[in-house]
Design a protein around this nucleic acid. Structure first.
Lengths: 107, 107
DNA sequence: ACTATATGCAACTATTTAGTTGCCTTTCAA
DNA sequence: TTGAAAGGCAACTAAATAGTTGCATATAGT
């Protein structure tokens, strides 16, 4: 639920790649998610646990396999509540930045 | 430039608060950004350095003061290139998630 | 039953990170 | 020119993080 957990989860490139992988093909097993990642299975497990805690990934046990599903809702919430506010005034702020940084020095 | 630096910078709540503060009032000095934060000036300085490295904050020296300006461009780029792709298929993925997680158990 | 496969758990290490304190430099103002 | 205000630099500590290895458990297939 906490936004902090989501931001922290997104801070690691490996975890973002895992989300990308699930985005490309949802419902992958742990083994599949480990392939070609040059890292031990346990390391990937830990990353997936972080993503699960942040509610970015949901899992389901099927027999001896564990299937992983992307949950895009927290990302949507971040984009909505936090990033949106910076984008709204984006051009204004950009103009102000230019004015402040360049307008002071010389003319 | 690197997206990783931006994500890492956004991962810390103190740094997000600093961005929020600059969003509310741009061009604050270091001293102003330290006020009411319950943390040493040097700690805040380090956080601001991280934000500067990620190009989320630009600074200008004015006399003995250092002014800080929010740069919303990297946030926009993240929203554009990375978050956007998860939002586009959001409802689809959500439906798939529900189907996968609930539809399997019973029938 | 036996074996291979898929995953879980736990201890350990190395690196990074967030914060501190102490001291130095620069600038403004009397 | 002297003192106070604003900030910079560097060393240190504590905690979190990312990764490892070794072993245990559970399931599938024969």
């Amino acid at each position: 639920m906490s936004m902090d957990a989501v931001f922290k989860a997104l801070a690691d490139p490996v975890r973002r790649q895992l989300l990308d992988s699930l985005h490309a093909r949802n419902g992958q097993t742990l083994g599949e998610l480990c392939e070609g990642r040059g890292m031990s299975r346990q390391a990937v497990t830990k990353h997936l646990a972080v993503l699960e805690t942040a509610n970015l990934v949901a899992t389901e046990r099927r027999g001896r396999e564990k299937l992983h599903y992307l949950n895009p809702v927290p990302i949507h919430e971040i984009a909505d509540r936090w990033i949106g506010k910076y984008e709204r005034g984006r051009l204004d702020a950009l103009a102000a930045l230019k004015r402040d940084l360049e307008g002071q020095s010389d003319g």
